[in-house]
């Protein structure tokens, strides 16, 4: 199937789901669809990597299958597992059952296998790939290049319909060259003030355009400071919600000083911002 007809169509359809893209996002999403290659989205926390996968699923009307990676994730959690309890019961119930305990009914599907066997269009989101151990990358290689899984007792299962794969990473470690080579790469960074303003306007209905503009500019200024943790888009959006709840119409020094905790979560960062922006 074709996922998107052109980069500009990707922009429109993502926009309908409330996700504002730019040239880089639209082009790589479009290419990942036509080339049937996984898309690796890398960037700091809170710039909308996971959200992108959800938006793609929504825009194309597909199912979203999500595999959350963490340290210690293994094949049994990512791919498939045999339901040994059921197998044991079957053997106890019927002594001749030794041959048929490795059948479909004893197989527990995990996200990767589920995405491959699904006959509906599916977006497979492999979230925070960098948190998983290096061995998991090896496991992903076979799946991502050939879209097939080998289960020794059942044989090789090939994807009926190739899923749209999105991998995300916060770059806490460098992913292996082999994995990167098989993916299209999208670096998501903090947006330009213009785009961030539009995001705030789209995400927070009811906020005044001037306030959104000021928020976006302030966030950009904060990111230019040398902070431990720069404010993410999600935090700017939270900030907008906060201002709306407080009923503030302008973002002046006093308001910023009072609500700085929404965007900066380190004490030293707050002090630095207060000093540099002249809040006190």
């Amino acid at each position: 199937m074709t996922w998107f007809a052109s980069p500009s169509e990707a922009v429109t359809r993502l926009r309908q789901t409330g996700y504002l893209s730019d040239d880089a996002i639209a082009t790589s999403v479009f290419l990942a669809g036509v080339l049937q290659k996984p898309l690796l989205a890398e960037g700091p926390a809170g710039v909308g990597k996971t959200q992108l996968a959800k938006a793609i699923a929504e825009a194309t009307g597909s199912d979203l299958v999500r595999l959350q990676c963490y340290e210690g994730l293994d094949e049994a959690r990512a791919l498939y597992e045999w339901n040994y309890k059921k197998q044991l019961l079957r053997i106890q119930a019927d002594d001749d059952a030794w041959d048929d305990i490795f059948a479909e009914e004893f197989l527990l599907e995990r996200p990767l296998l589920k995405a491959i066997r699904s006959d509906r269009p599916t977006v497979l989101l492999i979230d925070e790939t960098d948190k998983a151990d290096v061995e998991v990358e090896g496991l992903l290689l076979e799946i991502l290049s050939d879209f097939q899984v080998t289960i020794p007792e059942l044989g090789t299962i090939t994807a009926a319909r190739r899923p749209f794969v999105v991998l995300t990473s916060n770059a806490t470690r460098e992913l292996s060259e082999a994995l990167k080579r098989r993916c299209l790469y999208l670096h998501l960074d903090y947006p330009t003030p213009e785009r961030e303003r539009d995001i705030v306007l789209a995400q927070v209905p009811g906020i005044a355009e001037t306030v959104a503009e000021q928020l976006a500019r302030t966030a950009a200024t904060l990111r230019a400071l040398e902070l431990k943790k720069s404010p993410s888009i999600a935090e700017t959006v939270d900030w907008a919600h906060t201002l709306l709840a407080l009923g503030r119409e302008v973002l002046d020094e006093r308001t910023v000083a009072e609500t700085l905790g929404v965007v900066l979560k380190h004490h030293s960062d707050q002090q630095r911002a207060a000093k540099e922006l002249g809040l006190r």
């Binding site: 052109s6 980069p7 880089a24 082009t27 290419l31």
Partner: peptide
Amino acid sequence: RHIDLADRRTLREAYAATLVK
């Protein structure tokens, strides 16, 4: 093969997505 080659911004991003990791 899949993109409009006259559109320079798309061309740039297509190259970036495939080559710059």
